[in-house]
Design a protein around this nucleic acid. Structure first.
Length: 594
RNA sequence: GGGGGUGUAGCUCAGUUGGUUAGAGCGAUCGCCUGUCACGCGAUAGGUCGAGGGUUCGAGUCCCUUCACUCCCGCCA
């Protein structure tokens, strides 16, 4: 017999009628009627109402206990009368008549209430995370996280994957995000880096012949935070497969995502066969490589319209002459929207740093015409052409952006979200997955004009690898793909380049000579030289999957002990200074800044 | 590194064009109450209005500086 409890706070029902039981938990809420006291006892499993009357010798004592005190209650299960049944609780048909109780853990005055739906400042929540985590919603999010991870592990094993751990102390990599560095005591002046992802290790596991690997892998990147990006660390479902093509990986991941999302959410999965969209197409139609396919708005290129003689919108025409492009978003049947709606969008665009969005509505009396500030600049013919290109009807409106390609893409991508939200076009009760495929292998750095890897230097280029044209590197596409859900990038993956000679050639394009590659990626290059299987993989972000399943917009709501935006742990007081002895051992000197 | 928002009681917030002693709800403390489940009723305590400086007869309110939290841009192969 357990010393503290015979049952938990979520399991007593009419089946335990008249039984003598014991419960332990936190005092969630008291309702004190003076001569009769109701006390809700809470633990991980639920809430049970306990009741005590003033005839009891300990009545005055229990009346004084503060909320969140941990107590053990011994008592008898009694049925509630019909009128007093609480249907909100699993245990709502019974209550426990307290025979005796014992205080197990006292509490000081609470810095935040536990029993409340109010929102609290992040500072206080993170400092007292252990209290915050007692609160219902986040408590359940964390339990959901545990269940999802267990389920994924199980599914991966069923799919024939083996789970392995890879080193946490590894080497710094020249590509990618900023590394977290760890000084080495035994090797003065040298540093380990925490892995940004187990990228090289998982490829080495394939070379080692294990065929299918997965890991719920911690990844460390020293980059600034966002709502969906914790500073410091996050988790990926890292997986890699041998002897596969892109489609084989898609098949595994689609199967896994559908089973996870069906098991843990009631929301509808819009496309069970995830649509594949090329990088080029998504940048045109959605302005981003992480499109939210729940949003029906589509971007169209209208640059040619502004080269016509019967269009007199001179501001845009001049810009187009100098090489700018024009793209637009059609909104269906918005002719009756007030002027404030359109001006609001334009004003919002200016706040986002764009030069604004021009707009007009397509109307028709004797002939088609544009109504709105710039509508008069378009001839009926040119309007017909716009309607043809963008599938617009009379009564629809159009928002136009003009500028450099990257600027237009960015503002219209944001505008798609903004306008769809304003017009309530997004169905929140659904998941829309898609694959983004055919990423370019290289891109041009906007500032330096140098050729750089656009994603992963280890990706396999597409085409006949025996005679790739390295003189036009920007035209080379890679077997590189992303999986996106509801506008959130869940993961990048690729078929890897397992041919050292080819890798040297690609690195040379990006400005790394053979010597540098041998030095920086020695482990990798060396391994690929001893019989490497063709292989590829992907690494969906666990935290973002849980966010989607829990319907949360902020990653801290699904992370047990997150850091704040400045990468500080307010509860554990990290990072912190270390003493001189530690520094000396590590051969480190701290430069004092005034 | 840059831009926006917020900062008033333990917690969540209100506080008018600058004007007397800065308020409410929850929580705490004390008292009343035998069927509540956000129990109800009454009282009490609790404030460096984030910090510093300035303008003014007078600043929670206006100005400057600064700090903290947060959202976004940059960054995130």
């Amino acid at each position: 017999m357990n010393k503290y409890r015979s049952h938990n706070c979520g399991e007593l029902t009419i089946n335990e009628k008249d039984k003598k039981i014991s419960l332990s938990g936190w005092i969630n809420k008291k309702r004190d009627h003076g001569n009769l006291l109701f006390l809700d006892l809470r633990d991980n499993y639920g809430i049970t109402q306990c009741v005590i009357e003033n005839s009891h010798s300990q009545f005055k004592e229990i009346e004084k206990l503060a909320l969140e005190t941990v107590i053990k209650v011994e008592g008898k299960v009694i049925l509630r009368s019909k009128e007093t049944i609480n249907k909100e609780l699993n245990t709502g048909e019974i209550e426990v008549s307290i025979v005796s109780f014992e205080v197990l853990g006292k509490t000081k005055e609470l810095p935040l209430p536990i029993f409340s739906d109010q929102e609290y400042s992040e500072e206080i929540r993170l400092k007292y995370r252990f209290l915050d985590l007692r609160r219902k919603k986040i408590h359940h999010n964390i339990i959901l996280r545990s269940k999802v991870i267990s389920f994924i592990r199980n599914e991966m094993q069923k799919l024939g994957f083996l789970e392995f751990q890879t080193p946490i102390l590894t080497s710094s990599s020249p590509e990618g995000a900023r590394d977290f560095l760890v000084p080495s005591r035994l090797n003065p002046g040298k540093f380990y880096a925490l892995p940004q992802a187990p990228q090289q290790f998982k490829q080495l596991i394939m070379v080692s012949g294990f065929d299918r690997y997965f890991q719920i892998a911690p990844c460390f990147r020293d980059e600034d935070a966002r709502a969906d990006r914790s500073p410091g660390e996050f988790y990926q479902l890292d997986l890699e497969m041998s002897f596969v093509e892109q489609e084989d990986i898609f098949e595994v991941v689609e199967k896994l995502m559908i089973s996870v999302f069906k098991k843990f959410s009631n929301k509808k999965i819009l496309y069970e066969k995830f649509p594949k969209i090329t990088f080029e197409e998504t940048m045109l139609k959605y302005g981003t490589d992480k499109p939210d396919l729940r949003n029906p708005l589509i971007i169209n290129d209208l640059t040619e319209i502004f080269k016509r003689k019967d269009v007199s919108f001179d501001i845009f025409k001049k810009l187009v002459n100098k090489g700018s492009i024009v793209r637009g978003i059609i909104t269906k049947n918005t002719k009756d929207k007030p002027r404030s709606f359109f001006d609001g969008i334009d004003k919002w665009a200016k706040e986002q740093g764009a030069s604004g969005l021009a707009y007009f509505t397509i109307e028709k009396d004797s002939e088609i015409k544009g109504k709105g500030p710039v509508g008069k600049f378009f001839s009926p013919d040119s309007l017909s052409e716009i309607m043809k290109i963008s599938n617009a009807d009379v009564g629809d409106s159009i928002f136009l952006a003009c500028g450099k390609k990257s600027e237009v893409e960015k503002i219209l991508s944001l505008a798609r979200d903004k306008i769809a939200n304003e017009l309530k076009l997004i169905n929140n009760d659904s998941f829309a997955f898609c694959w983004i495929v055919d990423y370019p292998m290289f891109e041009e750095d906007e500032k330096t004009k140098r050729i750089i890897f656009s994603h992963n230097p280890f990706s396999m280029p597409q085409g006949n690898i025996k005679n790739l044209d390295f003189s036009k590197p920007l035209e080379i596409k890679a077997y590189q793909y992303d999986i996106v859900c509801n506008g959130i990038e869940l993961s990048s993956g690729a078929i890897r380049n397992h041919i050292p000679e080819l890798m040297y050639k690609l690195f040379l394009v990006a400005g790394y000579d053979k010597k540098t590659v041998d030095l920086k990626f020695s482990g990798m290059i060396n391994a690929l030289s001893f019989g490497a299987p063709p292989h590829g993989g992907i690494a969906p972000g666990i935290d973002r999957i849980i966010m989607l399943l829990a319907g949360e917009k902020n990653i801290r709501e699904v992370t047990m002990f997150p850091m704040n935006q400045n990468a500080q742990d307010l509860m554990m007081n990290a990072p912190s200074e270390v003493n001189d002895e530690q520094l000396k051992e590590l051969n480190l000197l701290i430069k004092k800044n005034k």
